[in-house]
């Protein structure tokens, strides 16, 4: 990352976060994780399946509550919050992108995007105009009235990205956003997410695709719920060297 982004504000902060599941012998899906993500950063969260990536992503987005530790999103500690307040944090500060898009099939593209503002109490007219703007921003300005079934997979995922962005969140969390796409569409979506980060939003992308992870500035490797490595590289160096070598490290393990 460049020097100016180091001065950028911390959007996401996890301190000693743990989350267990199960009954008699609980499994620690996330074990004592601490990390910070700043505005404008794009982070790859990688690891084998069952490493706790998705659980960690849910904790980062206040969809789930940690058993131990603190999660701070845009300065708000969500750990002790009621459902109503935690939901408000999601509505105002977090945008989610999922592998399966989760577009509602009976709604048009612009209506799907407008859903991103539904729980902020914004009125319908404003929701719609902002949704149209968000769709233009992802290059789908000509597809406002299309149903999801009339769009390609890549277009559908861009609609989903627009829905995540429409509320102008501080943090975008993407869970395998290219998992259901061909490589060309996938690359397009990744470029889109990188441009989102370029405008100052913190982006965390869960992926098991090494190529995608390698193209991002920072890579956090998770194994058995713990952070194995957390490396940040200069974009320029990464581009020049192909795979690139770590020049800066921000490990918290």
């Amino acid at each position: 990352m460049t020097g100016e982004s180091l001065e950028a504000e911390t959007v996401l902060e996890l301190a000693g976060v743990s989350r267990s599941f199960g009954g008699a012998v609980p499994v620690r899906a996330v074990d004592d994780v601490s990390l910070t993500v700043r505005a404008g950063e794009i982070v790859a969260l990688v690891g084998s399946s069952g490493s706790g990536k998705s659980t960690l992503l849910a904790l980062m987005g206040a969809l789930d509550v940690a058993d131990l530790g603190a999660v701070r999103i845009a300065g708000h500690d969500v750990s002790g919050m009621t459902d109503a307040h935690r939901s408000a944090v999601r509505a105002r500060f977090v945008g989610f992108v999922f592998q399966q898009f989760f577009l509602l099939p009976t709604l048009s593209a612009v209506e799907n995007v407008a859903l991103g503002l539904l729980y902020t109490g914004t009125d319908a007219r404003t929701r719609r105009s902002r949704a149209a703007l968000a769709l233009e921003r992802v290059g789908l300005g000509a597809r406002l009235a299309h149903r999801p079934s009339q769009l390609s997979g890549g277009e559908q995922q861009r609609v989903a990205v627009a829905r995540a962005l429409v509320g102008e969140p501080s943090l975008v969390l993407a869970d395998e956003p290219t998992g259901a796409l061909d490589s060309v569409s996938g690359a397009g979506v990744m470029r889109l997410l990188q441009s989102v980060a370029g405008r100052g939003t913190a982006v965390v992308v869960v992926t098991h695709d090494r190529e995608i992870a390698g193209a991002l500035d920072r890579r956090i490797v998770l194994s058995d719920g713990r952070i194995l490595s957390d490396e940040t590289r200069r974009v320029a160096a990464a581009h020049a060297a192909g795979v690139g070598s770590p020049s800066e490290t921000e490990g918290h393990v």
């Binding site: 300065g75 500690d77 408000a88 939003t201």
Partner: peptide
Amino acid sequence: MGELRASTGGCVAPSRLRHIDAWRTALSG
């Protein structure tokens, strides 16, 4: 988008759904 948000440690208003939107959502369901 580009603007950086100040870290406000204070309270967030609960998320809210307008009544009219609740009805619209039900109808579309």
